[in-house]
């Protein structure tokens, strides 16, 4: 089984870095969707089959925290796996996100960390391809 991924971040470089890291980590990827803010992210979830969401927090139009709140408010998306990738240093905010069932990866991140968290949240991760 491969995972359809949605990467929500206002930086194109970061979206590319996340997808590159997933490939390096040997995560089986199906479709890759990208969004530049929370509102575009919600549209992408609405219009596609998404297995796993990577979300930034600081974004224009709609930030990541608001997007996650709206995702969880929809009964169809209550169990959708979400991984927040951010420099966020506020323990208060991180705990709030974890209470909504999101995992947290601190930037800058190592590929092994991404691999571990994806495995933990989806139970899927292939051996690293060399």
């Amino acid at each position: 089984m491969s995972l359809n991924i949605l990467v929500v971040d206002d930086s194109a470089v970061v979206r590319t870095m996340i997808v590159k890291t997933l490939r390096m980590a040997g995560v089986p990827i199906g479709e890759v969707h990208q969004a530049a803010n929370g509102a575009e992210g919600l549209d992408a979830i609405d219009n596609n089959w998404i297995d796993l969401v990577f979300a930034d927090l600081n974004m224009p139009v709609m930030n990541g925290e608001e997007m996650i709140e709206k995702i969880r408010a929809n009964p169809d998306w209550q169990d959708l796996p979400i991984i927040v990738v951010s420099t966020e240093g506020s323990q208060t905010r991180i705990e709030r996100l974890q209470q909504r069932g999101a995992k947290f990866i601190h930037k800058p991140f190592a590929p092994e960390t991404v691999r571990e968290v994806v495995k933990e949240i989806t139970g899927i991760c292939h051996e690293q391809q060399v």
Binding site: D10, N58, P60, T87, S90, Q91, T92, K107
Partner: peptide, 18 residues
């Protein structure tokens, strides 16, 4: 993003602009 919690502690919340 990594400098702010070092100087303000891990309870403080910030919004970092683009």
């Amino acid at each position: 993003g990594n400098f702010l919690p070092e100087i303000a502690g891990t309870e403080a919340e910030f919004a970092v602009n683009a």
